[in-house]
Design a protein around this nucleic acid. Structure first.
Length: 362
DNA sequence: TCCGTTACGGTTGAA
DNA sequence: GATTCAACCGTAACG
């Protein structure tokens, strides 16, 4: 069950447990950091925990993206029909073949690469569950003959069966040459045009990337985001440091504080505001609603999915960061990006709690 | 005081 | 449609 209100952290900021910060806040964190403001000051200024500031800045430096990672979902399956078909073929040709031999052969034949090759146990499971009858029959026959009598390794396997499964780290598409970059951080080998980048958030996408809309990995979700950005942003003329100043200022109006630090007045302390001060309680999950984006105070219009008119000159960042589009962009990218380095050290416990939470909410 | 790290309680979405 | 599971989130606390 969704909570009606967000929570308040020690700094007085409002957050929703388990949900990402608004994109504008994330963007503001990066921008302030680029202005040379220390993370601790950013933390206090935006009332976001310093751990979060650190995390967002670290991610930005690492990936060039301010956006949160893809939440939920499952890892791409490696036992695609094509892989199963090859395993079946191997088993047919050599009933005595071991799972690890199949694994090696899948690699050798280019059916899989090291990133998406099934584990030996997975292959065993496939043999048992999906090719069980065949396996038993052939295995029996195999015992009647010599297991390796057929010299299967000499048989040229059909290389037309190239792997067509989900893209993983090993099958990534290189960043198009025309991909705009922000600082050097965008130069890291992203393998898919990241819709998470500040550049993309602000609507600067290369033609190359748009061409990718017709790629085999094109999906309605990607199209949704692409159409949004294409229709919304026509140029990068307003970019400063990769950040769209005017649009940003429209959304997160901030003044100059006495200490010289920009103050995000739109994101005020809980003591000075009602987090979602509407006549009808506005859920922090407004993120996914269609409420009007009038700023963080008035209903947290972050990432609304409404039909605000978007243009380079009237691109309220909140609107331009339509969560609907962003979410789908993340989904699209997540299907293409395998971020190997972000293994959660506490997956077990989070999973456990997630399950419990899920059960409680059910 | 600052900041990187991590335990924790939570959400999400594909399978 | 419900459940499982593995990803993610931000906060709080620690060193």
């Amino acid at each position: 069950m969704e909570p009606a209100f967000g929570e308040v952290n020690q700094l007085g900021g409002v957050f929703v447990n388990g949900r990402p910060l608004p994109n504008a806040i994330r963007l503001r964190i990066v921008e302030l950091a680029q202005l040379g403001i220390r993370p601790c000051d950013i933390s206090r200024q935006l009332r976001v925990s310093h751990g979060c500031v650190s995390k967002i800045l670290a991610r930005y430096n690492e990936t060039g993206s301010i956006l949160p990672g893809a939440i939920g979902g499952s890892k791409p399956r490696v036992t695609t029909p094509n892989v199963v078909k090859h395993i079946r073929t191997y088993k047919q040709r050599d009933p005595g073949i071991f799972a690890w031999e199949i694994r090696d052969r899948l690699l050798a034949d280019g059916v899989c690469d090291k990133y998406n090759v099934p584990s030996v146990s997975s292959i065993s499971r496939i043999l048992r569950n999906k090719i069980g009858n065949l396996s038993q029959q052939n295995h029996y026959e195999g015992h009647k003959q010599h297991p390796h009598a057929g010299a299967p390794s000499a048989i040229p396997y059909n290389h037309l069966y190239s792997y067509t499964g989900p893209i993983t780290a090993g099958t990534k598409v290189p960043t198009p040459p025309g991909m705009p970059t922000i600082h050097g951080t965008m130069a890291i080998p992203r393998t898919w045009p990241s819709s998470h980048s500040v550049t993309d958030i602000l609507g600067i996408r290369s033609i190359t990337e748009q061409v990718s809309d017709t790629s085999p990995y094109h999906s309605p979700k990607i199209e949704e985001w692409n159409s949004l950005t294409r229709n919304t942003f026509q140029s990068a003329q307003h970019m400063i440091n990769g950040l769209e100043k005017s649009s940003l200022d429209q959304e997160v109006k901030y003044s100059q504080a006495a200490n010289g630090l920009p103050t995000v007045s739109g994101f005020v302390a809980a003591s000075g505001m009602t987090p979602y001060p509407t006549s009808s309680p506005v859920s922090p999950y407004m993120t996914y609603s269609t409420a009007a984006p009038t700023g963080y105070v008035t209903g947290h219009g972050w990432q609304h999915t409404g039909g605000t008119t978007l243009s380079p000159h009237n691109c309220d960042l909140t609107a331009s960061l339509s969560f609907k589009g962003m979410q789908t962009a993340r989904e699209a990218e997540d299907s293409k990006l395998s971020i190997q380095s972000r293994k959660s050290p506490h997956s077990y416990h989070t999973q456990r709690h997630g399950t419990i939470a899920h059960m409680q909410s059910a």
